[in-house]
Simulated assay, not measured.
Amino acid sequence: MYAVDLHAHTRFFHGHRQLGDRFDPLGVRLLARAAKRRGLEGVATTNHDYYTPLDPPADVELVPGIEITTDRGHVLAVGPDPPAETKPGTLTPAEAVELAHERDCAAIVAHPFRNSTIRELEEVPFDAIEVNGKHPRSRPLVEALAEGRNLPLVGGSDAHYPLEVGRAYTIVDADRLTPTAVVEAIRDGRVGARVAHSRFDRLLRRGYRTIHRRKRVIDALEEPTPGVGTPPGEERS
């Protein structure tokens, strides 16, 4: 069994590709250091709409990936050979999944209840659905969605700062931790989502909700999935 954060970013800013390319080698070292402190064995680099191979840090497996911005929301493609670059908003979710599968990657619905309507697409052959570390209170909704689609749950922190790594992560049942083994475990359902509940994590989430209180983080809480109620104690954040 391995603990892997399947959704993390090497930088805290979007765009500025040339600046990012210079920053990413430092960013991945900071991610790996934070992951190791958290007790994780691996972390996926899923930057927005690009993938750059980076030198793997010691003691932590680096899983290649990309967060594809489709015309309906975000799709994570993680595996040995993710696409190098995608143009934001041009691919449909089905095209993003096809691209991921062509490159031997798993296709995951990222934060299905935040800035996304991908969850409405029943015919797209995703491999898993994500419990996102930024708003784990939506987990009952995500679990119901995954059960209805017969898909496994994975966890990812959606970290843009190293201190956010590991607030949600994935347990991977595999003999060895490699990008290919991660893909196979996801497709076989040998994965599970975990959410960290330390005092630090609770404070971090409280701060996140405060900062983003005016944003529409979980639109499903205003328009619940048919047959699925709002989790007790849930609030918009």
Rank of each mutant, 00 (worst) to 15 (best):
Y2L: 00
A3C: 04
A8H: 00
H9F: 14
R11T: 15
F13S: 05
R17H: 11
R17L: 13
L19H: 13
D21T: 03
R22K: 15
R22N: 05
L26D: 12
G27F: 10
R29E: 14
L30A: 15
L31Q: 05
A32M: 04
R33K: 13
R33L: 09
E41D: 14
G42T: 05
G42C: 06
T45E: 09
H48F: 15
H48N: 14
P56K: 09
P56A: 13
P57L: 00
P57Y: 01
P57V: 00
A58F: 10
A58Q: 14
A58Y: 08
D59R: 14
E61D: 07
E61K: 12
V63D: 00
P64I: 01
P64Q: 02
G65I: 02
G65F: 00
I66H: 05
I68D: 03
D71Q: 08
D71V: 13
L76R: 02
A77K: 02
A77I: 03
P80R: 11
D81H: 13
P82Q: 01
P83V: 14
A84E: 15
E85R: 15
K87F: 10
G89N: 07
A94D: 15
A94G: 10
E95A: 14
V97N: 01
V97S: 01
E98K: 15
A100E: 05
A100M: 08
E102M: 12
A107M: 07
A107G: 11
I108T: 12
I108P: 03
I108H: 05
A110M: 12
H111K: 08
T117Y: 08
T117W: 08
T117S: 13
R119L: 11
V124P: 00
P125C: 10
F126C: 04
D127F: 14
A128C: 11
V131D: 06
V131Y: 12
K134R: 15
K134E: 10
H135R: 12
P136D: 11
P136R: 13
R137I: 10
R137D: 12
S138A: 15
R139V: 08
L141S: 12
A144L: 11
L145T: 00
R149E: 04
N150C: 10
L151S: 09
L151Q: 11
L153E: 02
G156C: 09
S157Y: 01
S157G: 03
S157I: 02
A159C: 14
P162C: 12
E164S: 12
G166I: 08
R167F: 02
R167P: 06
Y169S: 01
I171L: 14
I171Y: 03
D173M: 06
D175L: 09
D175Y: 06
T178F: 00
A181M: 05
A181V: 06
V182E: 00
E184L: 10
E184V: 09
R187W: 03
V191A: 06
V191Y: 06
V191F: 08
V195C: 03
V195R: 02
A196F: 00
H197G: 07
S198I: 05
R202F: 01
L204I: 04
R205E: 09
R206F: 13
G207I: 07
H212K: 08
I218N: 09
I218E: 13
L221M: 11
L221F: 14
P224A: 04
T225Y: 11
G229A: 15
G229H: 06
G229Q: 04
T230M: 07
P232N: 03
E235H: 10
R236C: 05
R236E: 10
